[in-house]
Amino acid sequence: MKTAHDLVVEARTRIREVPIADAETAIRESDVLIDVREGDEYHAAHVPGAVNIPRGVLEFKLSGMPEFDSRDLAIVLYCKTGGRAALAAAALREMGYLQVRSIEGGFDAWCAAGLPQTTPSLPDFS
């Protein structure tokens, strides 16, 4: 029986991971940056410019959004440490997306490298 770790290791053999040193360039060259973490993780802090589509609904959301019809879109994905993004990248490759990459080490590596992060501004009701 395979474990989640086994599935991530297997997915990583089928995808392209971007080293954290090249992440900003990959993002600039992409059409979309997707944060596949859960909403609460995204709202705590995220990479500037990222849109949040949690891993659990990614395939369904992309299938229902006309802006994702082109399989030539350059897509960069990330999660907390890279596992969910690797699984998401493998799934998108299976859906026919040709230019999918995930950020190696995820948001944890991004933060450890001192790269910029943002939090959504929420209204002040005080």
Rank of each mutant, 00 (worst) to 15 (best):
G114A: 10
P120K: 07
F68H: 04
K2M: 06
E24L: 15
Y97P: 04
Q117N: 07
D72T: 11
G82M: 05
I20T: 02
F68Y: 13
L58D: 08
R84H: 02
Y78W: 12
T3V: 03
P116A: 14
M95L: 14
G96C: 10
E10A: 15
G49R: 06
Q117H: 06
E29L: 07
S102N: 00
E17D: 12
W110N: 05
G83C: 07
R16M: 13
A4N: 00
L73P: 05
A26V: 12
R16K: 14
L98S: 11
F60H: 14
T81N: 08
N52Q: 08
H43I: 15
T25I: 14
P54F: 13
A86W: 01
E94Y: 07
H5K: 05
G106P: 00
G56A: 15
V9A: 08
I53C: 06
V32D: 02
G49F: 07
E41Q: 11
S30C: 14
T119W: 00
A85S: 07
A45K: 07
C79V: 10
E59S: 13
T81S: 11
L73K: 11
I20E: 04
V51P: 11
R16C: 10
T3K: 03
R55A: 07
V51N: 10
D6T: 08
S30G: 09
F60I: 15
G114F: 08
F60Y: 15
I15S: 04
E59K: 13
V9D: 06
A112M: 06
P48V: 03
L77P: 01
F107L: 10
A21R: 13
L98G: 08
R16Q: 15
G83N: 05
R37A: 03
V8G: 01
L73V: 10
A85M: 03
A91T: 10
G105P: 00
G106L: 05
A50F: 04
L92F: 00
G64L: 09
A23L: 13
R37W: 02
D6Y: 03
F60K: 13
P123Q: 15
Y78V: 12
F125Y: 14
R12G: 06
E10N: 13
R101K: 14
L77K: 04
H43F: 14
Q117Y: 06
L7Y: 04
A26L: 13
I103E: 02
W110F: 08
L87Q: 03
E94I: 12
A90F: 06
A11E: 04
L87H: 03
E24H: 09
G56T: 10
D124K: 12
I34D: 01
R93Y: 05
C111A: 10
R14F: 12
R37H: 04
K61M: 15
C111H: 02
A89D: 00
R12W: 01
R16E: 13
P123C: 14
H5A: 09
A86E: 01
G106A: 07
A4T: 01
E67Q: 11
D124P: 09
A88R: 00
P116E: 12
S70K: 11
D72P: 06
